[in-house]
């Protein structure tokens, strides 16, 4: 096939391609997009507002409600967490949105890294949960032995044990799916 025939073929295909454009109601699409955008912005504002409210509450509790140094320190440690989490999740969202504007290959690299980081995140979360549960176990045993309080601490151990188990199951599931997920991304290159 010479170049002229090939170009002629491409021109015919281009014409057919344009004619095959699915019907799209632009006005409705724009209206729906505006709605989604407003919803997202509102959600972001509510998240930020709640973060600020919790932070302010922690500061209030630290200054006015804490009965001793231990409680003051505990509330002080809690203060930066809601705001910090809010800032972290906002930056993560912006990173994800920026990835949408990369070239397709770079976006696929980003997705691959995201999957690997996700496994790492859940692995670290699982270890963290196990450490915290062990600390809770020590505190629970102390209270059970010293003060004979059983049911409260057993419930605490049970509920938090379920959380540890859930995190473990999530981590194992994602790990098992990782190879297939990476393969499917690789197949798109």
């Amino acid at each position: 096939m010479d170049k002229f025939e090939a170009d002629d073929q491409l021109a015919k295909w281009q014409q057919a391609f344009v004619q095959a454009t699915p019907k799209v109601d632009s006005e409705a699409l724009i209206a729906q997009t505006q709605k989604s955008r407003t919803k997202l912005k509102l959600k972001g504002l509510i998240d930020s507002f709640l973060g600020v409210v919790v932070t302010v509450f922690c500061i209030y509790a630290m200054l006015l409600e804490a009965k001793n140094t231990y409680e003051t320190i505990m509330f002080a440690l809690l203060v930066p967490i809601p705001l910090g989490f809010g800032i972290w999740s906002y930056r993560l969202r912006r990173k994800l949105w920026r990835a949408e504007t990369l070239d397709v290959n770079a976006m696929l690299n980003f997705k691959e890294n995201q999957l690997k980081h996700q496994i790492h995140y859940w692995h670290v979360s699982f270890i963290g949960c196990v450490v915290l549960w062990c600390a809770l176990l020590i505190v629970a045993l102390f209270n059970m032995v010293m003060f004979k309080i059983y049911s409260l601490w057993l419930i605490q151990l049970g509920v938090n044990g379920i959380i540890v188990l859930a995190v473990y199951v999530r981590y194992k599931k994602l790990k098992a799916q990782l190879a297939v997920a990476l393969e499917s991304i690789q197949a798109m290159r």
Partner: peptide, 19 residues
């Protein structure tokens, strides 16, 4: 730029559907 965004979202869609 718009084509790039469109194809990225479409590839993302394919990944989600496969998952």
């Amino acid at each position: 730029y718009i084509a790039r965004i469109a194809h990225n979202k479409a590839v993302d869609h394919v990944i989600k559907e496969q998952n």
